[in-house]
Amino acid sequence: MGVPIQLEVNGQTVRQEVEPRLLLVHFLRDVLGLTGTKIGCDTSQCGACTVLMDGHAVKSCTVLAVQADGSSITTIEGLAQDGKYHPVQEAFWEAHGLQCGYCTPGMILSVVDLLESHPSPSEAEIREGLEGNLCRCTGYHNIVRAVQIAAEAMGK
């Protein structure tokens, strides 16, 4: 009853047989040990489980691992390159865009995707763009600042 899947996770090819009902987020966390991706709800609201799937931000709690067969996944562990933080990671640190850190991996990946489609977003676009990610600590103020800082850094 296991279904064989093959996908690329943070640049590494992964082959595995999985139960069809296995959620991508559990595949990443429990099977691959990539626990940077978080689970914050069970109704696809909070966005803590956001990863990049073929370059787009998706909620990995609402994707079956079998649906990710053949895709390329980037988790928070795979975002920094050559030991250098991604500009969005830098900006979250710089702007104090996180407190407890639990929403942060999903938030950062969501912002990476947002800045892909909106390289220099207005404040309203940033706030709208974050609607799929909940944060209970920051009131979003410094997250918005972080996105602005990252947008500027990436625009240079």
Binding site: H56, K59, T62, V63, S110, D113, E131, N133
Partner: peptide
């Protein structure tokens, strides 16, 4: 619809 992540899927 939904949010950005939801719209991709």
């Amino acid at each position: 619809i939904g949010d950005r992540q939801v719209r991709y899927r």
